[in-house]
């Protein structure tokens, strides 16, 4: 089991390395930093000094290694848009806000989607199943920024129950969390339903009933244990895409999290911050996938032997 986890960890690190290469190349593609950093009327001499100071005269691979070396220490340089802030420091500063929002969205998703998907499978064809299907269709066909605006219109403008935007109290989290969770609930409920349906048809479910096992244990012990792999796999993608995908919703609600920072940094061509955000997102992705790998082992003990 340890070997399995080490393997997963190593391949995650490798993926992270590839991402740094991509991030580095992207910044090369977007033009010389000379244009971005120096004023238009800089003299040739100033430019030469700048190039030497920043190591821009070095071969690309050497520049990359320098970048990587600094990145490993969390140093992505200073922000251009927010003077005086270190790029990664600025991103990390905004991270808790995003984790809070994403965490709530994940919680809402799990609490609604899993029971809904299981119930829809167990009571296939019943009213609950049809409601779940309708909900899934609605959820997956509504873009989340649109839903976000509609929610603001109903609950903030019309009913006046919740704040329209910003950050501060728990109330500020509710609308954006729902807007993020909505789509994910549909996706996860559908996946859970189909995985459960497939498993509930299996012969070993029949055998469990033949043994005299109660229907509750048949569903939650025998079926769920086997069906869980599918929603669990999706959960890795879900957690990561909720945490990183809040970019749009954070903009809609002017919620100053990492997503908002990303948008602002891109708008301001603030490369150090953009790079820091991308790497931070990548690390979140890896960690949530590693967590899923760990959960796999718990749900499905056979992996231990593999």
């Amino acid at each position: 089991m340890l070997r399995y986890l080490l393997q997963r960890g190593a391949s995650s690190l490798f993926a992270l390395l590839i991402i740094t290469v991509i991030v580095f190349s992207l910044s090369q593609l977007s033009g010389s930093p000379v244009d971005a950093l120096l004023p238009d009327d800089a003299t040739q001499e100033q430019i030469d000094i700048f190039i030497r100071e920043w190591g821009l005269d070095q071969p690309l691979w050497k520049q990359y290694l320098t970048f990587l070396g600094n990145a490993v220490q969390g140093d992505f340089g200073v922000s251009l848009k927010w003077p005086g802030e270190s790029a990664m420091g600025f991103v990390l500063d905004r991270m808790p806000a995003t984790l809070r929002l994403g965490g709530l969205a994940i919680l809402i998703t799990l609490i609604i989607a899993l029971p809904l998907g299981i119930a829809a499978a167990v009571y296939k064809g019943s009213a609950i199943d049809r409601i779940a299907q309708g909900f899934a269709l609605l959820g997956q066909s509504m873009p989340n920024f649109w839903l976000g605006i509609v929610l603001i219109w109903i609950f903030s403008v019309w009913l006046g129950w919740l704040p329209t935007s910003g950050i501060g109290s728990f109330a500020h989290l509710i609308l954006p969390a729902i807007a993020i969770a909505w789509f994910q609930i549909s996706a996860l409920a559908r996946l859970t339903r189909s995985a459960m349906l497939e498993v509930l048809d299996a012969e070993y479910i029949k055998l469990a009933r033949v043994k005299g096992v109660s229907e509750w244990a048949v569903v939650f012990k025998h079926a769920l244990r086997n069906a869980a792999v599918v929603p669990l796999t999706y959960f890795g993608i879900l957690a990561a895409s909720i945490l990183t995908g809040s970019v749009v919703i954070e903009s809609v609600y002017s919620y100053p999290g990492m997503g908002w920072v990303a948008i602002e940094a891109i708008r301001g061509r603030d490369f150090p911050v953009v790079q820091a955000v991308i790497i931070a997102y990548a690390v979140i992705y890896m960690l949530s996938n590693l967590l899923v790998d760990l959960l796999y082992v718990i749900v499905n003990p056979r992996i231990k032997h593999g």
Partner: peptide, 13 residues
């Protein structure tokens, strides 16, 4: 009861 197909009648988990 003994079911037909031993490949699928035991719970793999």
């Amino acid at each position: 009861m003994i079911l037909q197909d031993p490949q699928t009648s035991l719970n793999p988990a």
